[in-house]
Design a protein around this nucleic acid. Structure first.
Lengths: 338, 338
DNA sequence: CTGTGTTGCGACATAAATTGACGGCTTGCT
DNA sequence: AGCAAGCCGTCAATTTATGTCGCAACACAG
């Protein structure tokens, strides 16, 4: 194939989205790396030709011209999205919107937009598609705390490139925001919050920084100092996040009422789930699951619909939770007591 | 710009992923629509040239050659994903994997792969990125029931194009699978299941079909017969899905213990949430939320950490749930009783 | 302010490619 | 068998792409 066309494509992929930019000289080098040896002149001509068909922006003020791709511009996918794929993108957006911080979502926006356009344009003359599909999200529907535009970007880049970064941060118990230098070890997305795990320069111990408490972020091009034996999984399992009570999986055996918990049969809790009917109104399942907070919540709420046959300690746990809850709710303040 | 290169791009976008295909003749027509008038001969030549640089497949057995794009092939995005965008894709995958049926996810796979490669290749010589980020999912971590490859595809296409479709389906109370013709009205994704809402030809009433119970699907190119006044949102709110107890939002007032429920302060349950401290160990929040099943679960499990000040009926509800649960768990079968 | 190096751009000649046209050939269908 | 559609090789005319040169504009350092 005429390597011209391929070179065009390669060039297009090299031009970054707007805030960033690239110069002809850089392009020349990078093309060289890819095996295209062409004159600078050609690159200049190419860029101009391309900008008639693609949303390329030039800043002609700085002298090595700064070329960038329109920030919002639709992405071009090859091959074009087909209908099911586009629909899947829509679903993804519905699922992710309440889960990911808005800033992160914005990176996916051009892609979602492309999918959206495909759905509207392609075959659906009525444009009625949005009225045909609904996603019902689980959870309490809380809001995600807002994360600063730059902070997330800085932190992810620092993490991936193993650099330090500077954050303006105010922990819950700090009287006021401080500028801190962080050595990032890892990032944990846990439903409502995003945690940066790392050390703060000049202070002891591994910290968890809740990203929405940071207001500014800046990359520092200094290598991270990290203990060789740090391991994010071990850190999480150590209980530092207060999530998993234990690393041990739980072998769970439940006796469930039939109409109410039928969905357990069709959506097993784990890969090894075994189900067998006891009588017309009862069935038992046995399955290995992770010992999570959510599991306890669910069992607590379902206690009236099932018996926890095993493990005994978990049943005792739930019983205690129920007991404490009931005790408290019974001596609860009157509704109008504030 | 030389319209050759643009034509190449346009052609590439027209070639669908593998199971589907397109012929030179079709391409000629569609290119004509896009304003490229070229000989068939050129198109033939183009396709051959392109296939040296792109994973194009040809079936030369059928006589109008069938061209398609490699099903698994990496997508090409213009411009290339930058680091934060690629990371966001990774996160999206982590969040979505347990949420979406595998078949739907497979449509996103090429895109996730592209992101993955970007992360590994681009700037991260150590390839250590996967050890740096974790997503901790909520929920019980159950499996999604498997949905047949064709079924989801057929159903989405039927929905979008307003056609009927034929499914081999076995409802829970049917003795054996039957072939039914469905008039699809809408699709509802609700965490573990996907529901197709519509009518069955020759039977009364609007049905909910759980997609994983269908084994085959086939598009029927006949227009859907749907009441003009059908509205998916109204349908859901009518309680048909057994989700929302009421359409009415709940005005919730909680008195919470401080260290345990601190996260409510930072991740409000709703936009109008107001918080005020009572003393060092207690705070109150008031907020409007949807009356969902999940809300009740959560309140039940949190009963030991907070008082439900309002609404009284919800408190009574939770109290009843706790009471029944406790009663049941206390007279539960012994652990070794099976 | 002045040189120096870099970058952009117009022009031009050459090399390379694209393209349509034609004709022979295979394949599938009637 | 006959016909139509589609694939492919070939070729000449045309269009493009590319390197090179020269000049101008700009950036920067001294």
């Amino acid at each position: 194939m005429s390597n011209t066309a391929v070179r065009y494509l390669t060039m297009l992929r090299m031009v970054p989205r707007f805030p960033k930019s690239i110069t002809t000289t850089e392009l020349a080098e990078r093309l060289e790396d890819h095996g295209f040896s062409v004159t600078m002149r050609s690159i200049q001509r190419d860029l101009e030709k391309l900008s008639t068909d693609f949303p390329l922006l030039v800043d002609e003020n700085k002298r090595p011209f700064q070329w960038s791709f329109d920030r919002e511009a639709a992405m071009d996918i090859i091959p074009a999205l087909d209908l099911p794929a586009a629909l899947t993108f829509e679903l993804a957006r519905a699922y992710l919107s309440p889960m990911l911080p808005p800033r992160a979502l914005s990176h996916l926006k051009p892609h979602f937009d492309e999918a959206h356009r495909t759905l509207l344009r392609d075959k659906n003359p009525l444009g009625q598609w949005p009225s045909r599909v609904r996603v019902i999200n689980r959870g309490l529907g809380g809001q995600r705390p807002g994360i600063d535009a730059d902070v997330l970007e800085t932190v992810t880049e620092a993490l991936l490139r193993e650099y330090q970064c500077k954050l303006t941060y105010q922990a819950r118990n700090w009287p006021q925001p401080e500028d801190i230098v962080v050595h990032p070890f890892g990032l944990i997305f846990r439903d409502p919050n995003v945690y940066l795990i790392g050390t703060i320069e000049g202070r002891e111990g591994i910290r968890q920084l809740v990203l929405h408490r940071a207001t500014t972020g800046e990359l520092i091009e200094e290598p991270v100092e990290r203990p060789d034996d740090f391991d994010l999984d071990l850190y999480i399992r150590s209980g530092a996040m207060g999530i998993l009570r234990s690393d041990e999986p739980v072998f769970l055996r439940l006796r469930c009422d039939k109409p109410v918990l039928n969905h357990l049969i069709e959506s097993p809790l784990g890969f090894d789930q075994l189900t067998h009917d006891i009588d017309d109104n009862t069935f038992e399942i046995s399955v290995t699951v992770g010992d999570t907070q959510d599991l306890r919540w669910w069992l607590t709420a379902q206690a009236m619909h099932c018996d926890i046959l095993e493990p005994a300690w978990l049943r005792d746990d739930i019983e205690a939770t129920l007991e404490l809850g009931l005790k408290r709710i019974r001596r609860a303040p009157l509704s109008r007591s504030t």
